[in-house]
């Protein structure tokens, strides 16, 4: 199949970026989306041009390294799917595909389609953990956790930290990301001891880092490759409220 690709090119963080159009011939519907980009890069290298920088690693939807805004959608048009899981069978010969990096103040572009997501680490540093030193843990079955809570905690914990929620949000809010951690740990008895400071501190840190506020549009939930529910934001809000009372 032949494609027209409009790709954001930006030499480094300081450079001014722009879209560059590539005519790609000989791609195949059997490729994954990222393999299509690999193929583009092979053709660029052979022509002596600079290949497009993009991030990827596990290529099976679990590491959260890949990103990309594809035709105006985070991780492309498929729901519950990261860019690495997107297949070219979803496109047809002659299609034009626009590919951009995540756009958010807190995620500056490093090069081409790669952004810096270290702000997520900073948010977690503010409290996204249980302060349990190695060696001090009680026997694992000494604290039963109702299965329903454990399952919900798992759903929240399935966040892969990709940043799609932020990039999909018109406010560039990190609320779903924060909620996934706060909700996971609030649902587990082991996490209750620090629940108050966790909610408060993580939200304060996100504000400080330039993430926007949540206005409950739900775009994050739609684009989340793991389908993390807005209900976790509701739980975060309850935890936050409890912490500030």
């Amino acid at each position: 199949m032949n494609l027209t690709l409009k790709i954001w090119r930006q030499k480094n963080a300081k450079a001014k970026g722009s879209f560059v159009t590539y005519k790609l011939e000989g791609a195949s519907q059997e490729m994954s989306f990222l393999e299509m980009l690999d193929y583009l890069n092979t053709t660029l290298i052979k022509k002596g041009e600079d290949p497009v920088a993009f991030e990827h690693d596990c290529r099976e939807g679990i590491c959260g390294t890949c990103s990309l805004y594809i035709n105006g959608r985070a991780h492309g048009q498929d729901s519950m799917s990261a860019t690495c899981e997107l297949r070219m069978s979803r496109y047809k010969d002659g299609d034009t595909i626009v590919i951009e990096p995540w756009r958010a103040k807190a995620f500056p572009v490093i090069k081409d389609l790669i952004v810096d997501r270290l702000a997520f680490e900073k948010i977690l540093e503010a409290g996204g953990f249980i302060s349990a030193n190695a060696g001090a843990a009680p026997e694992a079955n000494s604290i039963p956790v109702p299965r329903e809570h454990a399952d919900k905690a798992f759903d929240a914990a399935s966040c892969i930290g990709c940043g799609a929620c932020v990039s999909a949000c018109k406010n560039a809010s990190a609320q779903l990301f924060i909620a996934s951690k706060v909700s996971q740990l609030a649902l587990l008895p082991q996490g209750r001891a620090e629940a108050k400071s966790r909610a408060r501190n993580m939200i304060a840190k996100a504000d400080e880092l330039g993430f926007g506020s949540c206005t409950n549009t739900g775009a994050c939930e739609v684009e989340c490759p793991k389908g993390i529910s807005l209900a976790h934001i509701a739980r975060l809000n309850r935890e936050f409220l409890k912490a500030t009372l």
Partner: peptide
């Protein structure tokens, strides 16, 4: 001890209806 430690750290391992 690894299981104890990971559980304490909040790893949501699968549980039975008993909570264990």
């Amino acid at each position: 001890f690894v299981i104890d430690q990971l559980t304490a750290a909040g790893v949501p391992f699968a549980r039975e209806y008993s909570g264990y």
